[in-house]
């Protein structure tokens, strides 16, 4: 990270920076921290879809366009990814709220929490899609 100059300009002193990602051996907790940020960024831009859906419901033509997009394979793929990102970020948020209380930092506890986060998010996403597609009728 020595090349990561600050905004002070080229004449700024070459002070040592704290070690960053590439220094450490990858660990599950660390990877999940990164995934939490990535899913957050995904959800951020995904709100465009939410705003489009809400506003399209005002008229039949607009809603037909939205349904055509979300029903297409790319639309469904985005919606599936969005579902997972939402559930994963929510469960990750609960994990962070638990950590905020000072609990769950033991070696086994923290590993269990991140594993439950990952497994839980995949399971709930699949479950929601089964419910959506089979029992409610799908995006059509």
């Amino acid at each position: 990270m020595a090349e990561a100059r600050s905004f002070e300009g080229p004449r700024a002193a070459e002070r040592p920076l704290s070690p960053h990602l590439q220094i450490y051996r990858p660990m599950l907790t660390m990877m999940m921290s990164i995934v939490h940020r990535i899913t957050g960024i995904g959800l951020y831009f995904g709100t465009l879809l939410l705003a489009w859906w809400i506003n399209s419901a005002a008229g039949p033509n607009g809603y037909a366009k939205f349904e055509a997009f979300i029903g297409s394979w790319i639309g469904r793929l985005i919606l599936f990814g969005y579902t997972w990102a939402l559930i994963h970020h929510m469960l990750g948020g609960i994990r962070h709220l638990i950590w905020d209380t000072g609990r769950g930092f033991g070696p086994n506890e923290r590993e269990w929490l991140v594993a439950a986060n990952l497994v839980g998010s995949i399971a709930i996403t699949v479950l929601l899609w089964i419910v959506g597609l089979l029992f409610v009728g799908g995006p059509q």
Partner: peptide
């Protein structure tokens, strides 16, 4: 959102 799946626009 799931309850609104498959319903028509009105």
């Amino acid at each position: 959102m799931i309850m609104l799946l498959g319903r028509n626009q009105p």
